[in-house]
């Protein structure tokens, strides 16, 4: 039976925890608003980019297409780019992204393909290194970054294209969580090399374009740009998802702490009353014995 002092200490510590989770929830809510508007503001560019790319790509024959669009013609080495958060305490956010990546890696390995992993974010590396330590080729940490700018996406994209140019892989897929709402973030896998052309957009464009400068020059400039845009979008969606996940995780933690405090206060009061009763009985029975 815990003493009254123990119970008091325990209640105080749960209350302190509750204050922390409450504060984290509010910080996440404030950051979420910013991250969400950034993610939404970036969507038009990514969408227009997809349409423009589809327009251009529909006019290019498979044989003359640059390698970023057509691929290397092989399907042996896969690069998985896993975007996660730099911090924990955000519910199942990191683990659901890494689970998706891990499942993909296992399927590919079972098919006898080579898998290489590029981790963006420390938590993904922490979660993946136990099983895939020898597959992880690089870890990019964005811990010091306060607000995501396009250059961060560009930096990651440059790494990816440099690896591709060096012939390090044939197919690249990015893993991130698409932001649907505060309580719903959808882990998503998206293939970026060879570029996937949205089928709906490709069908609509049959107009003959004029190109300035050459068609191939434009396509060559457009494709790496598209990768940077897709990566940047993944980063922004992920940032919003992370804050959303953290907010709901901290909300339920705060509620659990409240429940715990309620139960322990009840127990504390019962114990206190039991002790008073016991003392009274002792006094009364002592007086009666006289």
């Amino acid at each position: 039976m815990a003493s009254l002092k123990d119970l008091r200490n325990r209640i105080a510590s749960v209350k302190a925890t509750q204050k922390i989770t409450k504060a984290m929830q509010m910080v996440a809510a404030a950051k979420l608003r910013r991250a969400q508007s950034a993610a939404e503001a970036a969507r038009p560019y990514a969408e227009r980019m997809g349409v423009v790319l589809a327009n251009v790509a529909s006019g290019v024959t498979a044989s003359s297409a640059p390698r970023l669009l057509a691929g290397t013609g092989k399907d042996d080495v896969h690069l998985l780019v896993v975007f996660t958060a730099e911090r924990g305490l955000c519910g199942a956010f990191n683990s659901s992204i890494t689970r998706l990546a891990r499942d993909r890696a296992n399927t590919l390995l079972a098919q006898g393909k080579t898998v290489k992993i590029l981790c963006v974010g420390k938590k993904g590396y922490d979660l993946l290194r136990r099983q895939f330590a020898k597959h992880i080729i690089e870890v990019v940490e964005l811990r010091s970054v306060r607000t995501l700018a396009f250059e961060h996406g560009d930096m990651v994209a440059r790494k990816i294209t440099a690896l591709f140019d060096a012939g390090e892989f044939d197919v690249a897929t990015i893993f991130f969580a698409r932001f649907r709402s505060v309580i719903q973030q959808i882990p998503t896998a998206q293939q970026i090399i060879p570029a996937e052309i949205p089928a709906a957009a490709a069908g609509g464009a049959s107009v003959s374009y004029e190109y300035e400068p050459e068609e191939s020059d434009i396509l060559e400039a457009l494709l790496p740009r598209n990768i940077a845009v897709q990566v940047f979008r993944a980063l922004l969606e992920n940032a919003a998802s992370e804050q959303g996940a953290r907010m709901s995780a901290m909300d339920s933690a705060t509620r659990n702490a409240g429940e715990m405090i309620r139960k322990q206060t009840m127990q504390y009061n019962r114990t206190r009353q039991a002790m008073i009763t016991k003392e009274l009985i002792e006094i009364i029975s002592g007086a009666e014995a006289l």
Partner: peptide, 19 residues
């Protein structure tokens, strides 16, 4: 400001793609 010179776009311009 196109890569190969400025151009003006008005309504019903022919499809064009320029860097």
């Amino acid at each position: 400001p196109g890569a190969e010179g400025d151009f003006a776009v008005l309504k019903d311009h022919a499809p064009l793609m320029s860097s």
